[in-house]
Structures are given as C-alpha cells and as structure tokens.
Design a protein around this nucleic acid. Structure first.
Lengths: 332, 332
DNA sequence: GTGAAAGCGCTAACAA
DNA sequence: TTGTTAGCGCTTTCAC
C-alpha cells in the first residue's frame, strides 16, 4: 500500500542506505545515482515516514508547546511567534492547553516526553516548585516564554516587567496624580505579584506617595473585571484619578466603566495599560500602553530552544527583551 | 539510559508482550502479574515511547490542524474547541499556520501525512480545486472546520451562513432601512462571497430593495478597514443608514468611524455584526450580532473526525450547527 | 494467561 | 561512492 524506502531502493537498483542518503541530502552520493533515486521517488510519490525516522534517529523534529489558553489573544500572539520560528527551523509544534493548572501542566510534560518531542516551550503564570522539579528532570531542553521562574534555573524570555511597570506609573505621576490605582489580573501570577506590583510600589515610593491598599485590586484579568474594579474604586471617599491597568482588557473595562458613569478620559481620569494588543487602538480614547512584544517573546523563545536542541553553547539563557511605552490618548 | 519495555519485562520476570498488555489495558492478564508489572513500571518510571508505538501500531494518536492564523482571535477560538475535544479523546494536536496560502496548505498536508497523523482538521477560507484534489488523496480522514467546500466532497462543520446573513439584514430592513451597506471581509473567502453576500442579496430582493453595488465593500477584514469603509460609504450622495458587517472588528471600525464623525449609533445609523466574539461587548454601543459558535464548530469538527478515525459510519458528514442573533445595542 | 518472534520504516555505523 | 546489517521500542500474530 504505502511506498517505503525499500520500494524506492528496489526500483532504483540501489540500497536503502543510498536512498536514505539522498533523502537526507547527504553529499556522498554520485550525482547520477542521486538523480536516478530522485526520479523513482517522484514516480512512486515516496514520502518518508517521520515516525520510523524518529525511532531510528531519536529525533522527531517536533517541539511541545504548553500554553494556558490558546483562545486568549495574549497567548495566541505568543504562539504565533513560536510557530513561525519553529517552521523556519523545520520543526512542528504539538500544542496543548494547560488552563494554568499545575496538575495538567505536569501531565502534559509527561505526555510530551512520551511523544519524544525534541524540546518544549512552556508558558505558565506560576512556575511552582513541583513544575520546576518536573522540568529539572526533563530529557529535553525547555524554554519558558513570557513566564518567570524566580530561581532562574530554566531558560526564559521576558521583558523587564518591573521596570516597565515603574515607567508606566511614573508616566502617571509625572502628570501630577497622587491617587493612582493598580488594577491587576490575579496575584497568583508571578509577573503581576512580584514584578508589576513591585514596579508600581517603587514608583510611588520614589515619588513620596504612600501605598494605599484600597487602590490595588487583583481580580480577574478581563473586561468585566475592569468594569467592576472601576465601580469599586470610584466609590472610594478618596477615589483614584489615574489607573495603571495590568492588561488591555482591564484598561478598556475601566474606561468604559468610567465613561458609563459620565467621566471623561483622559480629562477626568487617566489610564495606562500594559500589553498593547490590537485592542489598544479599538477603544476611544485609544490606550496609552506599555508595549509587551508577545510575538517576539514567542519567536525568541523558540529560537533559543533551537540552540539548545542543537547543543550549541548559549551565553545567557535568561533573555530580557526591550520594551517601550506607546503614547496614545488615554493619558495626557 | 531511558527505560524500555524490555527493561520492565526483565525486572518483572515476564515477557515484553505481557508488559505491553498491561500498558494497553488488555484484560487478558492475571491480576497478580498485572500488579507485579505495574509495580516495576512505577519503580522504573517507565514511560512508553509513543514513536515506537506509532511505528508498530500505525497509529500515532495525533491529529494535524491546519489553520490560517492562530493569532487571529476568530481561529484561536476554533482551535480551542478542536483541542479540547482532541484531549478528551486522547489525541494530541500538531498545529500549523497556513496564512491562507494554498501552496502552504498543500505543503502542510504533505508534512502531516509524513508525520503519520491519524486525521486532519483543516480551516481555509477558500478551498481550491488543487487543495480539494490533495485532500481527496489523503491517507487519513479530513474534516473542514468553519470552512466551505462547495462540492461537498469533504466532511465539514458550519452554520447556515446564508440564512444567518439573511436574518441579520432583515433585522435592519424591519427597522425601516432602505439603504443598507454590506461591509465584508475579502470576497476571496467563499463564505463571504457565496453565502453572506447571497443572504444580503436575498433579503434586499424580498424586500423590493434594489441592490446598489456602491453599498457593498469587500475589503480587508480588520478594524482599520471598517473605519475606512465607513469613511468611503458616508461620502456617498445617498449614504447608507444601516450596516451589515461581516465581522466584529469591521463592525467596531464602522461604529468608531461614525462616532468620530459625530454620528450616534444606533440613532443615526444602525450596525449589525456577524461573529459575536468577546469584542462584541467591548464597544459602546455593544454589538447586536449573529452568533457564530466558533468553539462549538471546532469541537464538533474534532468529534466528527474521531468518528472517522474510528471507522464508525457517519450518517451525514456535512453538519450545520444552529445560529441565532444576540440582541444588544447597535441595532434598535 | 503468557511468551516467542516477526516486523513497523528508517538511520547509522561499519565494510567494502 | 555504495551496500550490509543492526538496531530504534513497541505491537501483534501465533503457539502453547
């Protein structure tokens, strides 16, 4: 039924080894026999069996990608960066959703080890002890994309979230605000809790503004949550005049909440976001936002992984990409 | 180094065959030996090699997913549905982006055949002759998700786009509009050209409204395009008073274009969308929209594929899911 | 209920 | 430059 390397060898009057050589581009083949083999391959429509190849060579040219949720625009963008570079280096991607559950992450790692992937790109908002341990025993290289392992044991690609948050909040402080809220996604996320929040605190501290716990809300990371958070915050006796939002959805929720209550942005309140997805331009006013280069983070992660898979020596496995603030209209 | 089935067999004093049986849940194993084997498996941390298994059994428990662009929220939602059901049936997904290029789609099909996937879910806005031909010669079952093959040769999962468009436009006609624009994504997409447009035409025709070519624009499917399209349409001497948008981004672009020009929605113009992504609630006014159940389309596609992979007999390979219109505030 | 043995389709020494 | 020959780790008859 299916044509194998053996069929090609027979038809071309050469050995399997020779066919294997031409298929794999090995230069040690006389041009005339190469041509002969190539002709037979075309005639028979021979297509190498990657599974057999994987078993024999112990390399599958596929990498595993563990992602919290591919339907989340944030992660989808990361995934695209990963896939593009994977394709460039001739790898396929096995993609699985973890829903951010440690148990699922670990099970997926095992599953991927079983599938003999050559490497893994993992995204997780919370790299737990147990997950770290599992990764430490991985038979293949792993790179974290847009995810923080505070022990720095696992290679990773990120931006300097703390510094970026610091700059964002300063942008607000520079406009004279004293009552600045931090509306964040859940603090179970290491990045939210240990970096963005820390940047927020540092900025306030340096400006001599006392931290007010009432002004920080770490709820869900969603549009609805942004609306709720605004509602809650606006009821404060000493309500905030500026908002540092942890994501675009949160920022838009805040803006719509405020607008629905008759407030003007940025005249009455100012909002700075942290993400800069395509959503940032799809609101009025458009969002001033920290640019999180998700595609690049994904792409660089995959590139880094190819180096590890090639056993190249990597100078620094912890890479920090540059960030910047895109000025639009939600901040004066 | 790695522990194989042979190691387990030796340690447990049984044959490879027996280990294989317990690993695969074959009932023909005495409970006591099953336990003995299971213990050794645990002690040695044995993990079956899926590649070897695939070679021997000719089944890889992985399915290929060919998608135009995973970073597109539309397709990401579809992909999530696919992946969830795949996981439920113990399949892994190999995900590749085609960027909607026929050449890439065909190359990806070949690549996936080579990887010995057990089945394929394909998404494509335009199922060409050549692609159809390639799929016709597929060694494994293929299902189209949210994609139309007009020859109906390939199983597929969709909604009744024509009817849905028809209903959407009637929603506008019922409000008294005579000048109704159709702002669409590219007409290279079969669904846009042959179904949504046809539904639009039918509704107008039945209402005795003459089709005005100036009122249909099939540009890019993006927010910016929506803004541009509004701008162009609003300059007409006899400008439209209502808009049927092919997607949420387009609808939001139209609304923002109009609002930036001082128009009120839905007082001055009304807009109905076709998608109902999470974006639909993230504008003011929120979008009235045809509900395109993307997640379900993905899920049902994968479920259908599992049936084919199991060689179950399927009554009807062309499945049409129900749709409805979600009423919100962009239409009175 | 269990084992022996023959592949699955290919790569990679090693020889020639 | 080319061929021979072991495997890679597992499933699957077929016997017993």
């Amino acid at each position: 039924m299916t044509v194998t390397i053996y069929d090609v060898a027979r038809e071309a009057n050469v050995s399997m080894a020779t066919v294997s050589r031409v298929v794999n581009g090995n230069p040690n083949v006389k041009p005339s026999t190469r041509k002969k083999v190539l002709d037979v391959i075309e005639r028979l429509e021979y297509r190498p069996n990657a599974v057999a190849r994987g078993l024999a060579s112990k390399k599958t040219t596929t990498v595993g990608v563990i992602i919290p949720d591919i339907s989340n625009i944030f992660y989808a963008e990361l995934a695209r960066g990963i896939e593009d570079i994977a394709t460039m280096y001739r790898y396929n991607i096995i993609l699985s959703n973890s829903d951010q559950r440690e148990e699922k992450e670990i099970q997926l790692l095992d599953n991927m080890y079983g599938k003999q992937v050559d490497g893994i790109v993992l995204m997780s908002e919370q790299v737990t002890e147990e997950l770290l341990d599992k990764m430490g025993h991985s038979p293949v290289p792993i790179v974290l994309a847009g995810s923080i392992d505070q022990t720095q044991e696992i290679p990773s690609v990120n931006i300097d979230y703390l510094q970026a948050a610091y700059e964002a909040v300063n942008r607000l402080i520079d406009n004279g605000h004293k009552r600045i809220a931090f509306v964040s996604g859940p603090f179970t996320s290491t990045i939210n809790r240990e970096y963005k929040f820390a940047g927020y605190k540092r900025a306030l501290e340096e400006a001599g503004i006392e931290l007010d716990d009432n002004l920080v809300i770490a709820n869900e990371d969603s549009y609805d949550s942004g609306i709720e958070d605004w509602s809650e915050l606006s009821k404060l006796e000493n309500a905030p005049t500026a908002f540092f939002a942890g994501s675009d959805e949160l920022a838009i929720g805040i803006i719509h909440g405020a607008q629905d209550a008759g407030k003007k942005v940025p005249d009455d309140i100012e909002v700075i976001s942290f993400e800069n997805s395509k959503l940032a331009r799809m609101v009025r006013p458009q969002l001033t936002s920290v640019v999180l280069p998700l595609y690049d983070i994904g792409a660089v992660s995959m590139r880094l992984l190819t180096k590890f898979m090639n056993k190249e020596t990597v100078e620094d496995g912890i890479v920090i990409l540059p960030h910047r603030i895109e000025e639009r209209d939600s901040v004066k």
